[in-house]
Computed example of a mutant assay.
Amino acid sequence: MSHIKVGRTVFVTGASRGIGFEISSALLTSGFQVVGVARKLTDDYARLQESHGGRAGFLEADLGSRAGTHAVAKRIRACADLYGLVNNAGVAVGGLHAGLPQDDMDSMITVNLMAPMVLSQAAIKAMSRRKSGRVVNISSICAQRPYRGLGVYTATKAALEGFTRVLATEAGAWGITVNCVAPGFVDTHMSSGIDETTRQRILRRGMLPHETTSADVASVVDFLLSPAASAVTAEVLRVDGGAAA
């Protein structure tokens, strides 16, 4: 479904694989120009570029570093036709909090929370000039339901949801919407370390026989960037089959 003309650009972080890749693909199909941000270009994203010509850009950056984040922020501020920002990049390191190394804590806080806040600041400045725009932050079911071994990851996502609501109040005067999408369990590289017993236990928490996919999450993001969501802001839309209800 194409709902927007070429010429409006959306930056998608963590775009090279998993949910970010599906979001990029869905937005390109809907007619957006997309700038994917990731640490390295994957074969899948390269093929996406080939199939969509000049509408699929790529920016190599490590959002785990201040320099990488600020380099992306600079590109966002300079984008004359910026329409959207999807803060999808994330890091999850499991382990009981009593034994979690501080380096792992720092990594999750930097990528999952600081990077979205810095990039959102740049995006709001650029969007305010056009009096329109969309920011979508990718949260997690963890912010609604506790999971052992994911304390810091959960803290970053809960903070991201709070930040989203406040930013929505600040950006609304410029016609900018700010929302969260909170996926449930999705089979991605990030979740590949979960054993099958745990995976099945998580899946049983859902109300539906349908297993949530990256494409399901991408469809909701696509909706939030569409004209149909013009009056939706400061919301957290869960895509989890009812697991956190």
Rank of each mutant, 00 (worst) to 15 (best):
L167S: 08
T164H: 02
I202S: 04
I194S: 02
A171V: 11
A173P: 13
E196K: 12
T197F: 14
R148M: 14
A168K: 12
F163G: 07
C142I: 11
T197W: 11
S192E: 14
H189M: 10
S191A: 13
A171D: 04
A158T: 09
A182Y: 12
A155T: 14
H210T: 07
I202K: 04
G149H: 04
S191Q: 08
T197V: 15
A168D: 10
R199F: 02
G193Y: 10
R199H: 01
G184E: 08
R148G: 06
G175Y: 07
A155D: 11
R199A: 01
S191W: 07
R145A: 06
C180G: 10
V166E: 09
R165H: 08
R201V: 09
R165L: 10
R148F: 14
A158M: 03
Q144N: 11
P209V: 00
Q200C: 03
L160G: 09
L203C: 06
R201W: 15
F185V: 02
E170W: 08
T188M: 13
M190R: 03
A173I: 15
G149F: 09
P209K: 00
L203M: 10
T198C: 03
G175C: 11
R201M: 15
G206E: 13
N179V: 04
S191V: 06
H210M: 06
G172F: 11
A159W: 01
D195N: 14
C142W: 12
T188V: 10
A182F: 13
V178R: 08
T154P: 00
K157V: 06
A171T: 10
E170D: 11
K157S: 00
G162R: 11
D187F: 13
V178I: 08
W174I: 12
A158E: 08
T154V: 04
P209M: 00
V152T: 13
A168I: 05
S191P: 00
P209G: 10
G172M: 09
P146Y: 02
D195V: 03
G175M: 10
V152Q: 06
D187E: 15
G184F: 08
L203A: 09
K157E: 01
G151Q: 05
G149P: 01
A173F: 15
R205I: 00
M207S: 01
L208M: 11
E161H: 08
A155S: 15
T198F: 10
L160Q: 03
V166F: 13
K157G: 03
A173D: 12
A143V: 05
S192M: 08
C180D: 09
T154M: 10
R204L: 15
G172N: 07
A182T: 07
V186F: 07
A158H: 05
I176S: 02
L150I: 01
A159L: 05
G175P: 03
A155I: 14
